[in-house]
């Protein structure tokens, strides 16, 4: 038993070492933000000799943080909510009516959407969005992000299939309609997988770059990641500004992770693709 304990300690030590190596790029990014450019070049991994917040001051000047942060928050919150609702509803039909031929076909039809990269379709898509008067608009961006419902319904579908139908049957006998059954009985049971889906989609939506730069033109509608990206182009020659800009863009996601840390694993636990 004692040998086993020693083994566990050795394992832990080895793992922590691997973690340290794994973390070097992040450490490097963060430590560089507190140094002058000259120092970054001369002593890349050392702690800052002259601790400076100048880079952050410059970075905040280069991007309009509050406006773009607000836009990002707005787009992410609404998109993710819509994705959850739309996916869960679609998945319910896909799971419960899976024997119907038309549903089978639609299931396959949706699956194809998983595979299509935006780069291949952006010109026609732009024309369509223009026809819908949704270009250069945050609502348009939200609409585009809702395409995430394809992955969402895929994830929900497996979970719903595994849910026993007894409760639903009982409610139906009591006279409840399908809509009521879904919202009152099924949807609350989906909570674990919903957490998973929210985590995935918050990450994707917040970090999205392609939809935003293609469909949003005006600076006052730009998102935080867009601002950072424009900064990359502009300050490509000055990494002392670039790195703090990157850190600023990361920070909200890190906070999000820390808050939801337990749910991320927990959500996956229950949700994990009970087919």
């Amino acid at each position: 038993m004692k040998r086993r304990k020693t083994l566990l300690h050795v394992q832990e030590a080895v793992m922590l070492l691997i973690c340290a190596v794994f973390f070097i790029p992040i450490y490097y990014l963060i430590v560089s933000t507190f140094k002058t450019q000259n120092e970054i070049v001369k002593a890349p991994l050392a702690l800052p000799a002259h601790f400076t917040l100048m880079n952050y001051a410059k970075a905040f000047q280069a991007i309009s943080f509050f406006r773009s942060f607000g836009n990002s928050l707005f787009v992410t919150a609404i998109s993710v909510t819509l994705i959850v609702v739309i996916s869960a509803m679609a998945a319910y039909t896909l799971a419960r009516k899976r024997e119907a031929r038309v549903v089978k076909f639609l299931d396959w039809y949706l699956f194809l959407g998983f595979l299509i990269p935006l780069q291949t379709t952006m010109i026609p898509l732009f024309s369509i969005m223009k026809g819908l008067k949704l270009t250069n608009s945050l609502l348009g961006l939200i609409f585009l992000h809702c395409n995430g419902c394809v992955f969402g319904s895929f994830l929900y579908k497996g979970f719903i299939k595994a849910l026993p139908e007894d409760l639903e049957e009982a409610a139906r006998i009591d006279g409840a309609g399908t809509t009521r059954i879904f919202w009152k009985i099924v949807f609350p049971l989906l909570k674990p997988i919903t957490t998973t889906l929210v985590i995935f989609n918050v990450m994707w939506t917040w970090n999205d770059f392609l939809y935003t730069y293609l469909f949003i033109s005006s600076s006052d509608k730009s998102t935080l990641i867009m601002q950072v990206y424009n900064g990359v182009g502009q300050y490509y020659n000055d990494w002392s500004v670039m790195m703090p800009v990157l850190v600023i863009a990361l920070l909200p996601m890190v906070i999000f992770y820390l808050i939801l840390q337990n749910q991320i694993i927990g959500g996956l636990t229950m949700g994990s693709m009970k087919n």
Binding site: N136, Y213, L214, S218
Partner: peptide, 27 residues
């Protein structure tokens, strides 16, 4: 002013201009 900006990295500016022109949305 309705100020719009696209980075010139990776020919993104050219792409965006083509998209806007094709859709009749040029500023």
């Amino acid at each position: 002013l309705d100020f719009q900006h696209v980075s010139s990295e990776n020919s993104q500016y050219a792409q965006k201009l083509t998209l806007l022109a094709n859709a009749g949305e040029l500023p």
